[in-house]
């Protein structure tokens, strides 16, 4: 897998580039495992409450803006492809391509945040932000408030991860453009890609769980 026999940057604790690359990859996957369990706590809460209050979750879900969420799902999926292509470009030392693909990925991430922002603004206007001003017409308004609490919580943490990702991608793009940092040294880009794909996976689960509960009724 280590395609670059002449890696210029070898930290003093490592014997060779393969060892360094393996360590970094395992480390990143362990970090992703921690993220899985971090989000997992919220997914567990979602499961418990949806099981306990099925009707409130159905009613709450029908108040979400499915086309905003659906578009965002597509945006993130496409950004994952551009990121995968960027990692590929880095492994082939094609700097110009790498920079433009990273910028494309960052723009798609930013687009996701903009769409999400409009969605949030709409929900605040509709009094769907949990708290004293929360108001919803539903059979169990308090339980529906729990649905929206979970909605804001999970999309909020996810949006935070997207925002961090966008900033990181922009930093990487700048470094790829102005320096030789990733020439024959594509591991950092690869790890950035893993993070970005993970963020995408979270949305792959969040979208149906939050937007698609009993849409047919």
């Amino acid at each position: 897998m280590s395609s670059s026999p002449t890696t210029p940057i070898l930290a003093h604790q490592f014997e060779d580039a393969t060892q360094q690359r393996d360590a970094a990859t395992i480390g990143m996957w362990l970090f992703i495992a921690t993220e899985i369990l971090f989000f997992g706590g919220m997914f567990l809460g979602y499961t418990v409450y949806r099981y306990t209050y099925p009707q409130a979750f159905a009613e709450g879900s029908q108040h979400t803006l499915i086309w905003f969420g659906g578009t965002n799902a597509a945006v993130l999926l496409i950004s994952s492809t551009t990121m995968a292509l960027a990692v590929h470009a880095a492994s082939e030392n094609r700097r110009a391509l790498l920079v433009s693909l990273l910028l494309g990925t960052a723009s798609l991430g930013a687009l996701f945040l903009v769409i999400k922002g409009f969605e949030y603004a709409h929900e605040v206007k509709e009094n769907l932000l949990p708290g004293s001003s929360f108001h919803i017409v539903a059979a169990e308004p308090l339980k529906a408030e729990m649905f929206f609490y979970i909605y804001w919580l999970m999309t909020g943490f996810h949006a935070l991860h997207v925002a961090i990702g966008v900033v990181l991608i922009l930093i990487f793009a700048a470094r790829a453009f102005f320096t030789n940092a990733f020439v024959n040294h594509d591991t950092p880009v690869d790890l950035l890609g893993l993070y970005w794909h993970f963020v995408d996976i979270v949305w792959v689960f969040l979208f149906p769980l939050l937007y698609l509960v009993d849409r047919h009724s």
Binding site: Y53, P130, L142, Y149, L153
Partner: peptide, 17 residues
């Protein structure tokens, strides 16, 4: 901080969670 939340029994939260 926000007075409303995940484990709050007022909106159906479960402290056992």
């Amino acid at each position: 901080i926000f007075g409303v939340g995940f484990f709050n029994p007022a909106i159906g939260g479960d402290p056992l969670l």
